[in-house]
């Protein structure tokens, strides 16, 4: 859901600072490549988070023509995750421990139990399916504004962490009060900051 197809949703952020050397293609490309998505399909890693092209979730190469569209910069954040239910792991551990006992004639001690558990976790992780999430990001360079194509709190946190790690540039979420700070002039701005008491539209509280 987002900026290319389907219904659009967006969280708006104000960019609070520019890169030291200005917003160059080299800066963006290098940072995207350094924080590109790494495929974990053939591994037992639990999750991987990184950038991919906005039009091709399988590509982590970032030549400017694939993310710069005039004054708009666009790319996607990809999260691949595999989850192993605790009940599944504990069932396999019980089987592993029983097999060990049958082979050796004694129950595994705590060190051996941990060894069995770690090996099983790795094996099961490698065999479990990955779930992929894509979050589209649009950077309006002329407006110093960045949009995330999602509005959920978890998605915002994921994006904010990845943005900070990748670009190191401060962002501030645009919410009613921060939009107000941007559009109001003195003296209304001071009055907004001093406003403490909500109004009631109904019978007196």
């Amino acid at each position: 859901m987002g900026f290319i197809k389907g219904m659009a949703s967006m969280s708006r952020y104000r960019l609070l600072e520019e890169p030291e050397g200005g917003l160059t293609d080299e800066f963006v490309q290098r940072r995207l490549e350094e924080n590109a998505f790494v495929d974990i399909e053939e591994t037992s890693e639990e999750s991987s988070l990184g950038w991919v092209q906005i039009f091709d979730q399988l590509s982590s190469a970032f030549p400017p023509e694939d993310w710069r569209f005039g004054e708009i910069l666009a790319f996607s954040l990809r999260l691949d995750e595999r989850k192993l239910p605790a009940r599944t792991l504990s069932r396999y551990c019980a089987i592993g421990e029983a097999r060990f006992a049958a082979q050796t004639g004694h129950k595994p001690n705590s060190v051996k139990k941990k060894e069995i558990k770690d090996a099983l976790r790795q094996d099961l992780m490698r065999r479990s399916l990955l779930d992929t999430k894509l979050l589209e990001v649009v950077w309006l360079a002329e407006n110093n504004e960045v949009w995330l194509g999602a509005t959920g709190e978890k998605d915002r946190a994921l994006f904010e962490e990845a943005w900070a790690r990748t670009f190191g540039l401060g962002l501030r979420l645009l919410v009613p009060v921060t939009i107000g700070q941007e559009i109001l002039k003195k003296p209304l701005l001071g009055q907004l900051m001093a406003l403490r008491n909500p109004s009631s539209f109904g019978e007196s509280e």
């Binding site: 219904m7 659009a8 949703s9 969280s11 509005t151 009613p176």
Partner: peptide, 12 residues
Amino acid sequence: LPSDTLSPKSVK
């Protein structure tokens, strides 16, 4: 529109 962020959702 949710009131906390005024972030537009499901825009058509």
